Simulated scan of single mutants.
Amino acid sequence: MFTVAQLATIFGNIEDIYKFQRKFLKDLEKQYNKEEPHLSEIGSCFLQHQEGFAIYSEYCNNHPGACVELSNLMKQSKYRHFFEACRLLQQMIDIALDGFLLTPVQKICKYPLQLAELLKYTTQEHR
């Protein structure tokens, strides 16, 4: 139903981002202190993975083209019906695919804000 080129345009390197995020989350969880959250040391995870975040640039650069490709497909009823059937089969909330494809773009933009907020409430003595 889709060409390889269409899939590459729409989804870009989303699988690479998924793999990176799984590893990053695993490392964050190791550094998080459940009993005493204020003693957690997650900054090192961001430093350790800083180069890995670069994979987001490819995705973000590709995102406008993905939206155009998806918009072109959605003009055809067979694709609209296909995407809606997938959404219903997976019991997903009523958000269009382009909304889900925006998530990685939003996520990478939130990290600096979250880190700044965390730093604001972290004492100077904290490692």
Rank of each mutant, 00 (worst) to 15 (best):
L7G: 05
E125P: 06
E35N: 13
Q31N: 10
Q114K: 15
Q31H: 07
E84R: 09
A96Q: 11
I10M: 07
N33L: 03
S44F: 07
D94N: 14
L113T: 01
T122P: 02
E29F: 08
Y79K: 01
K34L: 11
S40V: 02
E69K: 07
L7Y: 03
F11V: 05
V68S: 09
K19T: 02
Q48R: 15
A8P: 01
I17A: 01
A8I: 00
H81D: 15
G12H: 01
M92S: 12
I55M: 13
G52N: 04
Y111S: 10
K26A: 09
F11L: 12
L70Y: 01
Q6K: 04
Q114W: 15
V4D: 15
L7K: 10
I10C: 04
K23I: 02
K26Q: 10
T122I: 03
L113I: 08
Y79L: 06
V68G: 04
N72H: 04
R22K: 13
I14R: 06
P104C: 04
R87P: 02
L89D: 13
Q91G: 04
E69M: 13
F46G: 00
L102W: 01
G12Y: 00
L89E: 12
C45E: 05
N13W: 03
C67E: 11
V4Q: 15
K110H: 06
L118R: 06
F2A: 02
I93T: 10
F2T: 01
H49N: 10
T3I: 04
Q90I: 06
R127T: 10
E69I: 02
T9A: 10
Y32S: 06
G65D: 12
L39H: 03
S71C: 13
R127Y: 12
E36H: 09
C109N: 13
L73M: 10
C60V: 11
L88P: 03
F20D: 02
E29D: 12
Q91D: 11
A5P: 07
P112E: 05
P37I: 01
L115P: 01
H81W: 12
P104G: 03
P37T: 00
C45G: 02
E35K: 14
F11H: 05
H126G: 09
V68W: 05
A96D: 10
G52M: 07
S57G: 07
A85R: 13
L113E: 07
Q91E: 14
V4T: 11
A8C: 09
